[in-house]
Amino acid sequence: MEFFGKIVAAGLMNGAVYGLVAIGFVLIYKSSSVLNFSQGYMLLLGGYIFWSFRGGLRLDLFLSLLLTLPCAFLMGILIERITLRPLIGQPLLSMITVTIFLSLVLEGVASLFWGTYPLEQITIFPKGALKLGKTVLTTESLFAFGLAIVVMMVLIFFFRYTRLGLSMRGVAEGHEIMQSMGISVKRILTICWGIAGVAATLGGILLGGTLGFQLGLSHIGLLAIPAAFIGGLESPEGAVLGGLLIGLIESIVSGYVGKAAGVPASYIVLIVVMLFRPYGFFGLERIERV
């Protein structure tokens, strides 16, 4: 029982991070119908950029964050500008192909600048342990969990209640309609990609802080994709729940079956969910009217 509690806690914590990254994935899919398979590598690159400030230059934690976030926003924008903007409205296949190859490019960039070995361990959150009944939790993962949840809530609030958030939801419904109202779709898409870059980067920092900054982060970041699919691809709230679910599955399977089985299990669950609920659990209902 003790073991189970620990596993559930660990799963929820990783899951929160997957959810955060998945929100970025959902945002991009909603606004431009692009399935961004390079999201995991945006996470890697963003995490590495943070490491350079914090671990490389040994700057203060908050200053590092303050410097990293604009870079993350810019990374998202650049990716959209250079590779994906010309692809909007193109067949799904060419788009997916581009984002997959983009992943390789981003990984190449990461290994070129930071090398292929794990980077020096840095502490981000205060180390410590917290006892919850018989389960012992590290404060690090608690911080990561808390931060991921807070950022997700901020994002969801932002989509629901702000002017820009409403514009983003509008763009998700139809580009031409938005243009007919004088709203610049290009500008909104740029901001969406920027936010996705930031979400991925925050995910990278949180994961890097607990697991270490290493190339393998991208594979863990990729788990945001099944999270988004299970959530239904169109709902930020669904992405959060999908993330938590994937985190739990991964953690439970790793704990009881074996470490190597965790990630594959997440993908198996994805396949099963897709078979029975192709639109995920929170996908928007298709509105069909004649």
Binding site: R169, G170, A172, E173, E176, S180, L284, I287
Partner: peptide, 9 residues
């Protein structure tokens, strides 16, 4: 034409 509402809003 075609009453282009932003359907899910």
């Amino acid at each position: 034409e075609g009453r282009q509402v932003l359907g899910h809003l």
